[in-house]
Design a protein around this nucleic acid. Structure first.
Lengths: 107, 107
DNA sequence: GCGACGCGTTAGTGATGGCTAACGTATTGA
DNA sequence: TCAATACGTTAGCCATCACTAACGCGTCGC
């Protein structure tokens, strides 16, 4: 995977990271939350590991995956370096317009 | 493109959005910042337009592209909904560790 | 009208992605 | 020892991607 952002472009992988936000999980535990096969999840975890976003630990038959804080920090840094002040200004304009079109109690 | 985040997974497209953060640009103006062909840039712009992140306006021979505030807001919302409090906590742990390893004037 | 310009579109190609099915391996409990 | 469990790996398939080259179309200046 040529890019940290590309690693989280896949929705299932994003969901995996969110699940791992609650702590260590085994592959089977994680796979229980998806409709795709356990093999697919294992491969997604491999991608996330190669990207440095997760690490794993062996315990008996179980392979526990957890988030890698360094990798996650790097991802956050890359996202923030992308999201410049200019882009933020554009979004603020959008919320202005939204409020204009929905004057009562917008988000 | 099946996903807003996937639309910005491509580095050239991220760069396009950043360039458009400075205001409207023509295709040739944008393409001047890249090594790939103008056709490639045009296709990337097409992807961004289909994702609702940019709009375009015709003026004579020139096609001006600009950011779409609504789409950019949607992208921001999706990124923020992904980046939960749990993930943020993990990253804070990482910065703690970083400071422990580089005690003097870390980022 | 005519050539130069700005741009979109298309065809084609090589690479990559996501998935399933099947197999292999280590571990556990009986 | 044997079956079940947990997991990785592989092969193979189909879809999608990023890109270039080539063409076509509208627009502008002359």
């Amino acid at each position: 995977m040529h890019d940290l952002v590309a690693a989280v472009a896949e929705p299932n992988r994003r969901r995996l990271l969110q699940l791992l936000g609650n702590g260590e999980r085994t592959v089977t535990q994680l796979a229980g939350n998806f409709t795709v096969s356990r093999s697919a999840i294992s491969q997604h975890l491999g991608v996330l590991a190669e990207a440095g976003l997760v690490t794993s630990r062996r315990e008996g038959r179980f392979q526990y995956y957890r988030l890698d804080p360094h990798g996650m920090a790097a991802l956050r840094a890359e996202l923030e370096s992308f999201w410049t002040r200019e882009l933020d200004q554009i979004v603020q304009d959008a919320s202005m317009i939204t409020r204009m079109h929905q004057p009562r109690g917008g988000p």
